[in-house]
Write a protein that binds this DNA or RNA. Structure first.
Lengths: 203, 203, 203, 203
DNA sequence: GATGAATGAGTATTCATTCAT
DNA sequence: AATGAATGAATACTCATTCAT
């Protein structure tokens, strides 16, 4: 018995419940990445988790809910990574290449999850949209901050700009991940960096 | 009216067939724009066109086929518009704002079609992807030509760049069309123009 | 213009009608032999005859009707052949091998039609049954005649016997036609002959 | 009652599942006998079993599968009965009337099943064929054994003969079962016996 | 007589969701 | 908490048949 279980004892019931839930999430991640939202049934996910069909509904209200949960979980981790990467950059100009590199790195390490998130051929666009929207909101917020600090003097609308950035980032990453031989990782980072910086400086 | 039309007027039967087909396409455009590929059944489309369910299958092999047809039709018209807009621009630099304006104009005039094409909340990503992919290929081709003429000396990879441009253009347009009060048309054009030009010039 | 047309002039309308009907029958024979009753649609038959779908219904009330017509036509020809073969046989005993040989010969020359008629894997059993029933009735009648002439003194019931004969003949022929390498034509004739004769003589 | 049944009584769930399956089989037997494979829908069968339409697919992959299952089940029982009847017959000559009587007896007791199996008016010939083919193979095997033991010296080909026997047996039984007043059971047995013996002895 | 566009009833099959055990 | 049998609404697609031209 691990020490943590001694320190934080949980009733057996509760422990089992948490484990089942974790197994369902894991099964969902694997299957959604492979076959997309519409290519997977709630039975598939339950079977993949080694539980009965009905059990799924004890943990999630429906399939979309699980999908959304996975997507949001992923976006949280990604956001965290991106913030960590750019936290110590003195200026936006310095931060952007770090941002691009972190994004590419995360994509490489979490192909399945990123595929779910940015997939162009997923039927899950409706859900994906919300998640990307959130990312866009974060970027817009960030740009507004920069503008307030005088770092963003182009006069470009932060909302439009953030939509544009999310669109280009998600599409390039999804396209590249589909077949990484399409471009070197450096080329991808370089291109993302240059385009993002473009909105930064008045011409 | 051409002479041939007088000599070989369309038989009533053929005319009716063409009309039915047109009504089905119209119904499809309307419903797909409203509810997306998965939110619409072949019965819905037939009912919307005022014909029996089976009639749908006299004109299209299945729902996807109709959707694809509409999407490709739209992309053809759009491509034509974009080419016409930029045809007489002496340089890429001059062409980009014209391109952006033409895109925004087309989107305003064909909200339903563009919504289908660029829809973020359509479950039809798989089909949409192909269409956008085609657009991306066109842009990549174009950029390669410019590079050959010395107009595109940034060294950015044309494939990556074209994916990025398609991603940002489609997302911004879809976002803006969802609620045009989100930004003025000028702001959108300006933003699209600036970002696109960014890849053009070395820094 | 063939001489016969001059001698038996028909209004053009009537001639065309007869030709169309013949083409539909021909198309039906070919397609039913290939794909069975259920594997063929009325559209298929019309298309095979080079006419429009609706034309089919000007000549036949429905698909089953055409099938039945073809089957009956075939059974008529077959019956004629069998009668011709046995007409001059002095006794039943002499007639049976001639009957068997004629049946096998007909089957070889009209594989398609016999396949339709005797097909074991045709979904058309319901229709086939009637046709074979007719053949059975003919055999029963024949046996009763023989019995009346004292040639059939076994006391075996003519109805039961005729069913038995039709059953064995149709099954053996269909089985053999499916792959003629399964047995030599002589073996088939010999077997059919021997079994048929068995009911003829008291033991 | 075996000990294991006491120790591991069937859980109620499992019992219910088995009952549902049995009810579907029962419903299928009844309906197929009445209306043939094509005359019955999966919904009909489910309704006849008192379950929802979808439940059918929880137990059988499709209609054909159920039909085949029933047919094979029947042929197994029939084969068993026929073997039991002839097991102690010293010679083929003694066995044949027992065989005929057993077949007729089985047919009387299982009209529905035999109707399905030997049905002339079933559109299910394709499936029926396999089952009868199996029976034919059994007969051919049997005849070959007899030939090896010197009991079958006619020189008639066992394959052709077995097809002939299956053909005549199935047709006579089906015909008789359709209306048992057509002939007395003794007449049927007598006729089947005589014809079958005919192939046995050289003349 | 021929056409062929249109009809619409018919059917198989899937799958999210429930609930008695 | 977990099970898994059962539910039944949803939906795509076919095809015999009709009828205005």
């Amino acid at each position: 018995m691990p020490v943590s279980d001694v320190l934080n004892p949980l009733p057996a019931r509760e422990r089992s419940r948490i484990q089942t839930r974790a197994r369902l999430l894991e099964s969902g991640r694997k299957l959604f990445a492979e076959r997309g939202l519409h290519g997977v049934t709630s039975h598939d996910i339950a079977a993949g988790a080694g539980v009965a069909a009905g059990t799924f509904y004890l943990h999630f209200t429906d399939k979309e809910s699980l999908f959304r949960m996975i997507a949001e979980e992923t976006v949280d981790v990604l956001r965290e990574r991106l913030q960590a990467a750019t936290r110590n950059a003195p200026t936006l100009r310095d931060g952007v290449p770090l941002f691009a590199a972190a994004l590419v790195g995360f994509a490489e390490e979490n192909r399945d999850l990123v595929r779910i998130l940015f997939s162009r051929d997923s039927e899950a666009a409706g859900i994906e949209a919300d998640v990307l929207e959130e990312l866009a909101a974060g970027i817009a917020e960030n740009r507004r901050d920069l503008a307030a600090r005088g770092e963003h003097p182009t006069g470009l609308d932060p909302d439009v700009l953030s939509q544009a950035l999310v669109g280009l980032l998600s599409r390039v990453i999804a396209w590249w991940l589909e077949d990484p031989r399409r471009a070197s990782r450096e080329t991808v980072i370089e291109t993302l960096t240059r385009i993002q910086l473009s909105g930064t400086h008045p011409r």
